[in-house]
Design a binder for these strands. Sequence first.
DNA 1: GCCATGGCTAGTA
DNA 2: GCCATGGCTAGTA
Length: 112
Amino acid sequence: MKGSPLTRQIIEIINSIPYGKVSTYGNIAAAAGNPRAARQVVRVLHTFSESEDLPWWRVVNREGRIALKRGFGFEEQFDLLISEGIELTSAGCANLDRYGWDVDDGISGNKE
DNA sequence: GCCATGGCTAGTA
DNA sequence: GCCATGGCTAGTA
């Protein structure tokens, strides 16, 4: 295990995204204590996805869309999300009102 | 120097 | 479509 406190915080949050849900770079960053650290989330995904067994595919951009490019992971992420029952548009966009998850949801029950 | 962002603008339809 | 942003890993010595 490696990384600064913020890095480990981000790892912990990503690991707590439930099956069948997605979270966004910005939300994870904010939950980790720095709303502007979205890019750190990107970095963590790059660096620790494998070693920390992160559910990297459950992280999407602010619009609920897969950020990866076609031919560079997009298809894999698409399939993984579909396999968890998440509906996606052909562009790889999920409805955040329905599938979005924030850390708070895990603490104080569900929204909706 | 890197990064899978996010937010805001210009410029077209 | 541009550019300001934030924090730091990987890999070598």
